[in-house]
Design a protein around this nucleic acid. Structure first.
Lengths: 244, 244
DNA sequence: CGATATGTTGAGGCTTATCAACGGTAGTGG
DNA sequence: CCACTACCGTTGATAAGCCTCAACATATCG
């Protein structure tokens, strides 16, 4: 039964990483239109896990990481938060995760109560928020699949595709991606170690799939290889195994 | 910076497993009030990953598993779906996962279009749906933490606590939990193998933390041990390691 | 141009997966 | 009601993949 072949026509790998923020939505962002812009340096913490959730943020510039901690110093990066996204709109009062600036970031802030009041005052925003949350759930499910069953190589390929597709959605030029976050954040996002991420990147470079320029820039040379090695879909991956 | 001690006062381990269904909500369930009850045997598939999403379901009785498949026969159980929950309300049109009966189940079905029409006709349901989705996201994040960083033992302890707390929420008697699903489903839910789940259960039995009666029944003898070994929270786990 | 944080590479070990066989439970049919 | 059978679960041996620890290289910033 589980062996039944399912062809999934739906493009569920939209390149959206799994994060705890609302994706680009002009309508939701309009709620921040008249708020002043704040600037924060890299490694600033916008809010801590367990803090009272007093504000909602629109990210104007820069990248944040959303972090949950557990015993033994272990850390999980639940997702990243990019410009145009809204952060903190969803969850219950004590924050369930920290939000930390990876780069210099600029954000607009709005009081949580007034945010919700405004939301109620404009009923057309309800469906927008619901649609947004559904997209979030979709991304979260993809991430669960990655963390539960993908190999290190598949995780890194998936991550690189997410990054590439995100930029493509922004109509940025070709296959050159700028990785805003350090290897440790990538590792904690993919459920790996820094070293393993590094080794996989080295292997992909050896294979000519990607090339690395500097610390933050990666050029994708063979998109197809990344896609076949991202492990998505439930059908055959390796032709070699069929031949055997 | 990551070493900062965070005490998280919020009880984010509410025992809700991570699933793709809406939690018990009288208001949402009212949408199914006049639908006939359907019965399905164990291992029936309600819908397949990739199918058009034509219906929304209320689970009246029994347990379902929500499954995503990937290459190489690998499988991930995204979550389980229990009586009183609503399934299929959230996602985009092609289903992102299959829903399969673990036990005999009875459900009420409603056409997706009429479900959404009714939702629009009753604006008071919007916030209910949003709150529900937020709870789902919370559970999904917890599951990501589990899959990314927890040990096999922590995963199994977390699962057992989820089961126990779910029953407690239903005001069922004490520490005896009925596990509806086979080991393989538990394994695919926890990102482990059947064998590892079995071995951890054996070890917990040896330690006197639980005892196993038959295939489906587990008695929790030391709740506290489960809680300290579930790995939640970011502070010290083992006193021994402090002593050393 | 130098100092420090970040990233890479290597050796070895541990947790968990894999493969295989056995045991038990529960459901079925006589 | 009991025995048979098939599935499910357990246990063991082995191995693979990733982690850990450590040293080294390279960017980036002052």
């Amino acid at each position: 039964m589980y062996a039944r072949t399912i062809v999934v026509p739906h493009d569920h790998a939209t390149g959206r990483p799994c994060h705890v923020t609302l994706p680009v939505s002009q309508q939701l962002r309009s709620l921040f239109a008249y708020q002043p812009i704040e600037h924060h340096d890299a490694d600033t913490v916008l809010f801590w896990e367990g803090d009272a959730a007093a504000h909602v943020f629109e990210v104007v510039e820069g990248v944040l990481r959303i972090v949950k901690s557990l015993s033994g110093g272990r850390r999980v990066v639940i997702g990243f938060c990019y410009p145009g996204e809204v952060l903190g709109a969803l969850l219950k009062n004590p924050h369930l995760h920290s939000a930390e600036a990876i780069t210099h970031v600029s954000v607009r802030r709005r009081d949580r109560v007034s945010f919700e009041t405004e939301l109620n005052r404009r009923p057309e925003l309800g469906p927008v928020l619901i649609a947004t949350l559904c997209t979030e759930m979709e991304a979260a499910q993809g991430q669960m699949v990655l963390l539960a069953r993908k190999t290190a190589e598949e995780r890194v390929c998936t991550f690189l595709l997410q990054q590439a597709r995100r930029l493509r959605g922004m109509r940025t030029t070709g296959p050159i991606i700028e990785i805003a976050m350090p290897r440790l954040d990538i590792a904690d996002y993919l459920g790996l170690t820094q070293e393993t991420v590094s080794r996989v990147i080295a292997r992909l470079t050896m294979l000519g799939v990607i090339s690395v320029a500097g610390r933050r820039t990666i050029v994708i040379r063979t998109f197809e290889h990344l896609e076949t090695h991202a492990g998505d879909g439930c059908e055959v991956e390796s032709f070699a195994s069929q031949m055997a």
